[in-house]
């Protein structure tokens, strides 16, 4: 009897496995979880919590990602097994098939508005910084838009790479520099060379003769038109003077 009791007492000395407390805190919503996912962009570290995906970065190591998260987001972070289906939701999001939920709590209302607007830019298209500024009701805040996008905690997923300068310069990119930005845009089907040739010539809008509608050059609508039916404009007033109205989808100018 005594030895059985002694053995039982030893059973009570068992320790919880490493990381147990952190996993519990993550499940209670007091910490974010993360894992590394293999994507079309290569391995991407992704953090999530019960509100949605909260951060993503192409870090070199877990340590680098954890440090960046701590400094940038400031919440607790725990490595974890991803919930079932997260990998395929990530894939769908990056391929533009489905929208996922994001947790943008830590950001200012302005940054949140910028990022939510950025989510509306379809895959394969780009918009200038000024477009975001105007759409969110702060037409003069173009630089602030740039800052908000540069600090996007969820690049790739919130497609800040689809926002470029109106003079055609690709601009810097928090998700891996201008080269990475070009690569992702090309991957998404943007014809960068055509876009930059137009920009260099000072041509910002493209109109279609038959419809009398002008668009951003990457807008999907009007893509079916024949090459010889395209006309190009330097600015809004030129387009309007020629009798063209702005496209309702890409909204190159306020629809009067």
């Amino acid at each position: 009897m005594a030895t059985v009791m002694f053995d039982l007492k030893r059973l009570g000395d068992v320790k919880a496995p490493p990381g147990f407390a952190e996993r519990v805190l993550a499940q209670a919503g007091m910490a974010d979880s993360y894992a590394v996912f293999e994507t079309v962009l290569g391995p991407v570290y992704v953090a999530w919590n019960r509100l949605g995906v909260s951060a993503a970065m192409r870090s070199k190591s877990s340590a680098e990602f954890e440090q960046w998260f701590r400094e940038d987001i400031g919440r607790r972070l725990v490595q974890a097994d991803p919930p079932a289906g997260l990998a395929s939701r990530i894939e769908d999001q990056l391929q533009g098939k489905r929208r996922m939920q994001f947790d943008l709590r830590g950001l200012t209302p302005f940054s949140q508005a910028v990022l939510r607007k950025t989510l509306e830019i379809p895959r394969g298209q780009v918009r200038p910084y000024g477009w975001i500024a105007r759409e969110i009701g702060h037409p003069a805040a173009v630089r602030a838009v740039g800052t908000a996008l540069a600090n996007n905690p969820i690049p790739y997923f919130i497609p800040c790479h689809r926002v470029i300068r109106s003079d055609g310069v690709i601009g810097n990119y928090g998700g891996g520099g201008p080269e990475a930005k070009k690569n992702i845009l090309t991957l998404e089907g943007v014809q960068l060379k055509r876009l930059q040739d137009l920009a260099r010539a000072g041509l910002r809008y493209e109109g279609v003769r038959s419809t009398r509608v002008f668009c951003f050059p990457t807008c999907y609508h009007g893509r079916a038109a024949r090459q010889e039916n395209f006309v190009f404009f330097h600015d809004e007033s030129e387009a309007r003077a020629a009798g063209y109205r702005p496209c309702k989808h890409c909204r190159p100018a306020e629809v009067a």
Binding site: L8, L11, G12, D13, V14, K15, A16, P17, F20, A21, V24, L25, A28, M30
Partner: peptide, 22 residues
């Protein structure tokens, strides 16, 4: 509450894991 809960987890995790195992 969150701080109290974190303490609770750290103070009792071994004991409750041992209970689960047994």
């Amino acid at each position: 509450t969150e701080r109290a809960f974190e303490r609770l987890v750290r103070d009792h995790q071994d004991r409750i894991f041992a209970l689960g195992l047994a």
